[in-house]
Computed example of a mutant assay.
Amino acid sequence: MTLEISPAARDALESWLTAARALKGNSENTITAYRADVLEFIVFLTSHHAEPQGLAPLARVTTPDMRAFLAHLRGQGVGSRTMARKLSAVKSFYRWLAELEGFEPTAVMMARAPKFQKKLPRPLAEDAAKAMIDTVEMQAADSWIGARDAAVVTLLYGCGLRISEALGLRGRDLPLGESLRIVGKGGKERIVPVLPIARRALDTYLRLCPYDPEPDAPVFRGKRGGALNPRLIQKVTEAARLQLGLPATATPHAMRHSFATHLLAAGGDLRAIQELLGHASLSTTQAYTSVDEVHLMKVYAATHPKAG
């Protein structure tokens, strides 16, 4: 059954999304998730109250309404992490709507999603990260494709790039110098240093690649010349980690985690690492301190003469 959403509620949702896109620089993926999450909430209220929810009913949402919504999500098998994300989107929408319409969104703001255990990053050991790069290069039959895959993974580990950021490089970004300007999530810009090993890996790929690096074209190409699909990097990394006997957590994103953890272990400053990774919040970067502490305790337990 398709439930009718009031035109006023739909217009308000689209106006909020437009503001979120313009003022906060949210990506299209984020906007799509926001739309789906808030629309799901409005649809629930429509069903819950058996009538379309215009702006006035939306302003009268109660604590029991919020409890019923969270119970509905649990009944749908929605996990705690996803539930927290959906509730966060609804709260953001209500903050905006309350300011626009002049009401107090207390019931929505006081709602609490169940707590979830935040998963810590799972970095590779330094020798495993280096072996991953070497092994990735050997997976392809064509030498230029092997060089391409190695260059991508080297940028993830050597510069701490997200896979989307590495694959987002264009011909106009070449040649790489000692630093690179990256536009990451939410349009946030950062400058990352480019190690000589990363430049060499990219130069090798460019020398072998049969496609010219035109200014507006992607640096990393697929076999037929189109933009490289990130799934191909995930597949080649999976093949390499199976060959090396590494755990399933040895993914392309784990190379970025490894970059951060190894910098921290070498005495890197947490604020500097936050900037290099492009994290909006220091709390996101602080997860790496927990990873490093776990590593240190394992080393301590294995090597300290009093630990046995």
Rank of each mutant, 00 (worst) to 15 (best):
R190T: 11
R190I: 03
R190W: 12
I191G: 11
I191C: 11
I191S: 10
V192F: 09
P193L: 07
P193M: 01
P193G: 11
P193W: 07
V194D: 01
L195G: 02
L195T: 09
P196K: 00
P196A: 01
P196D: 05
I197M: 15
I197F: 15
A198F: 06
A198Q: 03
R199I: 01
R199G: 01
R199Q: 12
R199L: 04
R200G: 00
A201C: 06
L202S: 09
L202W: 11
D203C: 01
D203S: 11
T204D: 14
Y205F: 13
L206C: 05
L206Q: 10
L208K: 13
C209P: 10
P210E: 13
Y211P: 07
D212S: 14
P213I: 09
E214Q: 11
D216F: 05
P218G: 02
V219R: 02
R221K: 14
R221P: 06
R221W: 11
R221N: 01
R221I: 00
G222Y: 08
K223D: 12
R224I: 01
G225L: 06
G226P: 03
G226S: 13
A227C: 10
L228H: 07
N229K: 01
P230G: 10
P230W: 05
R231N: 07
R231Y: 10
R231T: 06
L232E: 15
L232C: 02
L232F: 11
L232V: 10
I233K: 01
I233R: 00
Q234P: 00
K235T: 09
K235Q: 15
K235L: 15
V236H: 04
T237M: 10
T237R: 00
E238R: 14
A240Q: 01
A240R: 04
R241A: 11
L242I: 01
L242D: 15
L242N: 15
Q243S: 13
Q243K: 15
Q243T: 15
G245I: 14
G245K: 08
L246K: 06
L246W: 05
L246S: 07
L246Y: 06
